[in-house]
Design a protein around this nucleic acid. Sequence first.
DNA 1: GCCTAAGTGTCAGCTAGCTGACATTTTAAA
DNA 2: TTTAAAATGTCAGCTAGCTGACACTTAGGC
Lengths: 223, 223
Amino acid sequence: MRALWYFEEVNLFKILCPHKYSEYKAGHEFNSYKKSDYIYFEDDAATKLYLIDEGKVKIGYYTEEGEEVIKAILTKGELFGEKAILGIEKRNEFAQSIDNQTLICPVAKDTMHDLMRDNASVSFKIYKFIGLRMKKLERRLQLLLFKDTKTRLLEFFKDLCEDYGYECPDNGDHVIKHPYSQKDIATLIGTSRQTLNSIMNELKQDNVIEFNRKELRLRKNIA
Amino acid sequence: MRALWYFEEVNLFKILCPHKYSEYKAGHEFNSYKKSDYIYFEDDAATKLYLIDEGKVKIGYYTEEGEEVIKAILTKGELFGEKAILGIEKRNEFAQSIDNQTLICPVAKDTMHDLMRDNASVSFKIYKFIGLRMKKLERRLQLLLFKDTKTRLLEFFKDLCEDYGYECPDNGDHVIKHPYSQKDIATLIGTSRQTLNSIMNELKQDNVIEFNRKELRLRKNIA
DNA sequence: GCCTAAGTGTCAGCTAGCTGACATTTTAAA
DNA sequence: TTTAAAATGTCAGCTAGCTGACACTTAGGC
């Protein structure tokens, strides 16, 4: 998916950050967050969207039982809070910095609407971004409806690979340095931590993947 | 959800159909479909979105095994194929008329983009519509991830109620005349037909719902 | 009006994946 | 450096929900 953007020589951040547009530049600032700082909370008013210039941001929410559920971890160049431009007034998730040096460029939804109206290229990019989000959501839903845990996990790894992966020059493995714990992955693909762990070790056994706490490798033939 | 539109005295169809806009009116026509006619197929180019003026439309796709999977059944006033405006070029589902007198107003995605640029109210409505779609998708995903089949079914019924329900004047039950078979519902909520059937009969037993092939009733206290 | 296909109801196995319980390893805060 | 908390690994039950099989009912095309 991301490959598409590169193909079109587009980077969301470059295109969208209002610093690029002189008329919006004045008074526009980057925000800086330390580890564990919240960018917004559940139920906050959704007035802005955000671009990550540096660092990592965790998106998630809490269940009725107070348990944290992770929705995604985003990094440099990625955009979040975009539902603000879709007329959704309240956050139903929180956004939290998980790096000590997170730099974020906020864009008011009205500014964004103006940008989109005035600039067909911007609006096209945003449409496309939202279309992609939707497509991914639908795909996840279908996996959950029809595929077993192992398949879902493999699909998740392929997605991770597109976002974080690079090819190991030595042997063609795909190396993925990602920020997700096994618990995170388990909730993302809809299984228990224990089941996830045993499947991962089974896949390691079968030489399909290799992993430790820092990185994940998909063996050459796969993905 | 739908209540929101009414509250704002907005009807998607009224707002969006290009017949309302003189400059787009010329040459614009309604299409008529008989039962089982396809409006579009999987893999067709996605160049238009559609508004239903009359009749019912089934949205779905086929699995690798050739089995039909239903995504939704839409009726008068509802919009589909909207992913065309989000820069998605190919349909990944089909749309098929299931009434003998289905009338549909097609809108080219470029026309829609023009409309949206020229008219803030239209673009706002479309944004909101897409935001709602996304919210619903996310909610479905969460139900699937964390709730058991019975809960998912009850939630599905509540949604149905918002779309098709009206209050029975006699006893306050919510009466829902919907077009879904048990098989459809089962795949929509991610369970087997058999399990669904037994849960429905259990709920009937417990006097939570009442149903036959034509309609569904949610007893007063519920939903 | 008949007949076939689709929809509905029910049951007896079976199994993927959950739960709880515990050990070990790693991380990061004090 | 110490130590508590988080992350990972493993296992033995257990159960929600799946599968296949079959009977019955209804709808709609001919």
